[in-house]
Design a protein around this nucleic acid. Structure first.
Ligand code: MN
Ligand code: MN
Ligand code: ZN
Ligand code: ZN
Lengths: 139, 139
DNA sequence: CCACTAATGCAAAAGCTTCTCATTTCTATA
DNA sequence: TATAGAAATGAGAAGCTTTTGCATTAGTGG
């Protein structure tokens, strides 16, 4: 029950938070903007404000329930924290997003941080390109 | 003379473009926001609008004179194109930015794109952490 | 030096996100 | 279960960065 998840995260189990969590669970693997979540709520006839969506997503992020990414374009996208970190490869034509993990890159990053004396807290790696489908379309 | 650089890039050699290019050259190695460039212009008593700064920076980017980055925080930063690509490591406390290149990572990225069938156009790697100086401050 | 076109400054507007505050909802407790 | 206090919410205003419209100005080729 998600009621417990919220309590465990130190958050009151309110209707907006439960609904938003459910939406994120339903769209697992997708990367949603606040606006997208809001539209889902509207479609479900929920009377929840956009401001609340932003507030809740930020709280979820701080609680470790979701991860926020800053893809090019100037807005944040969110996804349920799947437990293990991954990076992203994005199609600049259609917006498709692929996820990947590369141990060698992860390791090199740690080495670079250490070499610079940084205590690493986070990192983001985005590969931009044209996906196979869009390459075919262009040809 | 920067007059030539602009012509070569297919851009008219106007006063705003010359001034902005000079500022970027003066601050080589720094990462400036449009607002930062604008403040420099004001400090030099130049009567150039912020809108023009944004327009010119975008043109410079398209002409390959400058590179635009999207660091966390929702705004763009620009730097003169130094000819060879590099990635960034940023201090989350003081905003310090270090640059680095890692051939192994570059190579792995290409391999990942190829494996996914993507034709890679660009990529960004940001390592966030606490720099040596800020670690000392905290202790 | 002129005429033509491109570029500029300013103000308005757009897009995303945060804030304010009156009102509502949780939750702990009796 | 009823209640009081604290936390959360909805609606709209406001904040920030960036873009756009338009009248005016400034480069450029001839
Ligand atoms: Mn993802
Ligand atoms: Mn740089
Ligand atoms: Zn595509
Ligand atoms: Zn620092």
């Amino acid at each position: 029950m998600s009621q417990q998840e919220l309590k465990k995260a130190g958050l009151k189990a309110t209707v907006p938070r439960l609904k938003i969590l459910k939406i994120l669970e339903a769209k697992q693997g997708k990367h949603m903007r606040a606006e997208d979540v809001y539209k889902c709520l509207l479609a479900s006839d929920e009377d929840i404000g956009l401001a609340t969506v932003y507030r809740v997503l930020t709280q979820f992020e701080q609680a470790g329930l979701v991860v926020r990414h800053h893809f090019d374009g100037g807005h944040s996208v969110f996804e349920l924290d799947q437990g293990e970190h991954h990076d992203h490869m994005l199609c600049v034509k259609c917006g498709r997003v692929d996820e990947f993990v590369d141990d060698i890159i992860e390791e090199r990053q740690k080495a670079i941080a250490e070499q610079g004396g940084y205590k690493i807290t986070d990192h983001s790696l985005h590969i931009y390109g044209v996906c196979p489908a869009c390459q075919k379309n262009a040809a």
